[in-house]
Computed example of a mutant assay.
Amino acid sequence: MKSYTIQEINDFLNGELIGSTDQHIDGPEELQKAKTNHITFIGSTKYVKYWADSKACAAIVNANIKIEPDDKRALIIVPNADLAMAKILELFNPPAPEFELDIHPTAVVHETATIGEGSKIGANCYVGKNVVLGKGVTLYPNVCVFDETIIGDQTIAWSGTVIRERCIIGSHCIFHTNVSIGADGFGYRPSDDGRGLVKIPQIGNVIIGHFVEIGANSCVDRAKFSSTIVGDGCKIDNLVQVAHNSVMGRSCIMAGHSGLAGSVTLGDGVIIGGSASIKDHTTIHSGATVGAGSGVMNDVAAGQTVLGYPAQDAKKMLKQWVAMRRLTK
């Protein structure tokens, strides 16, 4: 078990240490659950009231929050407690599961596949024809990578992930359990006789940039033609749908249960709240935010925040909600 003194942690964070504690710290924990061997964090004034009753021996605190240490407990003052806690979590992060063999004997790797130096392939994986894995790629057990896919250096795919044929994946990506990349887009048209539906072939692929993270059970569908694109640095939560021919710019965020219909375009730094739905062929420009549960039917301007169903400017929507409450009274 990892353990650190308060001075070692402060040196790691380069913060301002106020007070002291002799207690060795075995890990971080939230204020109300912390034990005496834990360090906690206070990033908002609304949590200050819990400090007095917390058993934590130390806390990481935003510099703009006024709080006093007490006997045998310490504070580390930092500009941003959330970012500092992220560093602490990395410090205490347990090691990843280990591979006894770089390529497990039950893995099926096509003879034409290229496997980069230091890559690891777990039990029951499938690596298809002409696949290229960069250096240090990790495929945990039961991952499938189909023909002619390219995966960049240091990318990790957790168990159950399926990457379909001809996809291009950047470096330092993380795909969590059961991610689907490159499945057919949802395309159908009524048949000429009106008695059924005709499937529209999906012959494109998926291109994913560098440092992208995709949560468990999320789907990025292949394009009808051309490519579905997820830009560098995008972070996608669990249970998210990115439909065919959608394009995400750099460093976009999509929270759980949200979804993009076909041919949606996101600029850079767009934030999509949980359970939000974006209509097909819609453009959300750079820096815009879509509130949780919203339904976007029209383009959203750069930097704008929209809310509601159908979504509109957040300030206008909040005024409407206030007016509706007044009517009910």
Rank of each mutant, 00 (worst) to 15 (best):
K2H: 12
Y4W: 14
D11F: 06
G15N: 14
G15T: 05
L17Q: 15
G19E: 12
Q23N: 12
D26L: 14
P28R: 01
Q32R: 14
A34S: 10
K35Q: 13
T36E: 14
H38Q: 09
H38P: 00
G43T: 03
K46E: 07
Y50L: 06
W51K: 08
D53M: 01
K55L: 11
K55P: 00
A56P: 03
A56Y: 05
C57I: 12
A63D: 15
A63W: 13
K66P: 11
I67L: 07
E68H: 02
E68T: 06
D70Q: 03
V78L: 13
P79V: 05
P79S: 15
D82L: 10
L89H: 12
L89S: 14
E90S: 15
E90G: 14
N93G: 04
P94D: 08
A96I: 05
A96N: 13
F99L: 07
V109R: 13
H110K: 07
H110I: 00
A113R: 08
I115N: 05
E117P: 11
G118M: 15
S119A: 15
K120T: 11
Y126E: 10
V131E: 01
V132A: 09
Y140T: 04
F146H: 13
D147C: 06
I150Y: 13
D153A: 10
V162W: 00
R164K: 13
S171F: 06
C173W: 10
C173N: 13
I174W: 09
A183V: 07
A183G: 15
D184S: 11
S191I: 00
S191A: 04
D192H: 08
G196P: 01
L197K: 09
V198W: 00
G209D: 09
H210R: 14
F211G: 07
F211T: 06
F211C: 14
V212D: 10
I214T: 04
G215P: 07
N217W: 07
S218G: 09
V220R: 05
V220I: 15
A223N: 00
F225Q: 07
S226L: 12
T228P: 08
G231H: 01
C234V: 11
D237V: 04
N238D: 07
N238C: 03
V240E: 05
Q241I: 08
V242S: 06
H244M: 08
C252P: 09
M254D: 03
G256C: 11
S258K: 08
V264M: 04
V264E: 05
G267R: 04
I271A: 15
I271Y: 12
I272P: 06
I272V: 12
S277T: 11
K279Q: 12
I284H: 02
I284T: 03
H285P: 03
S286Y: 03
G287N: 08
S294L: 04
G295Q: 04
M297N: 09
M297T: 12
N298T: 10
D299M: 02
D299Y: 07
A301F: 00
G303C: 01
G303W: 00
G303D: 01
Q304A: 10
T305N: 03
V306C: 09
V306G: 05
G308Q: 05
Y309G: 05
P310S: 11
A311P: 08
D313F: 09
A314C: 10
K316T: 15
M317C: 04
R325Q: 14
L327Q: 08
K329F: 03
K329A: 13
